[in-house]
Amino acid sequence: MSTAAVTLRPGTPGRTGFSIQFAFLPVLLIAVVVGMSLASPQFYGPINILNILRNASLLTIVACGQAIVIIAGGFDLSVGAVIALASVVTAKVMGMAAAAFPGNDAAIIACGVLAGLCSGLAVGLVNGICVAKLKVSGFVVTLGTMSAAAGVGLMITSGIPVYGMPESFVKGFGRAQFFGLPTAIYVAIAVVLVMVLVQRRTLFGRYVFAIGGNAEATTNSGVSINRYVIGTYVLSGVLAATTGILLTAQVGSGQASFGGDRMMLQSIAAAVIGGVSLRGGIGRVEIVTVSALFLTILGNALNLLRIDSRLQPVFLGIIMVAAVAAEELSRRRKTRG
């Protein structure tokens, strides 16, 4: 294969459309960062930076799962509710485990975290099975599980925060810092790295792209797509649960008010601004990460600039519509030209 030409041959226009997306978001991000560091000294404060990174991490983890579901041509409205459910389940199970194994923090934490992750897995499984086997639209199914999961979370807690988790979970994990950075960041980095590998190097990642690009052609090529569709929803559920557990450890109590519609909408916004196409088949986790960071910094910047927090959604809305409209218009120009 020594003759293999590395340069693109004529007639095969490479991925120019992609590079615009690649460049656009980081430039915007840098612009906001530079602008803010000039406008407000507080922005550079270590506390503020840590705060940004922590929030961005939580959003990134959820957005990665959401992105995978959208790339496969679906939607997951239930992530916000799963965050709440996982938080409550984790705290509650830890409370019960503390009674079962008094003093054995490792066992208690293991039980709690496992239970939390399983709650996310269960919701993801229901979503996935309904979408893949019953061929129901992902939008409505996850709308249903969203209501159901939120309801279960509230049933468990009656709306009151759940305490009683081991100190080592809260102080030693949730609020701990390694090399000056909170644990959530390491978790997020690990998730992103794994997801990048999954997207590029695994069968699962490849099939997710293929299903979103053209499900019929994928089936015709001999791929049993159902299990991969279910896989995307399970992944999204588990990642949302991870965020719920991190939030619980950080705050120190399980709360049914975590996540919610806001987090769900933000995760979709992060994915969409990060170049994930709602038509399916297109999107990279690393860009979604940048987009999650961008959204978090933007919110922070608006706060520091004392722009009425109530007006902030307006910016988010406009940016999101503008980003997608720009992508759509460039796509149209490409197909026309």
Binding site: A210, T218, G281
Partner: peptide, 14 residues
């Protein structure tokens, strides 16, 4: 063919 995948990815699809 899946339009959003590369030629090579399509060759091996499935």
């Amino acid at each position: 063919l899946v339009p959003t995948l590369t030629v090579e990815e399509n060759l091996f699809l499935g």
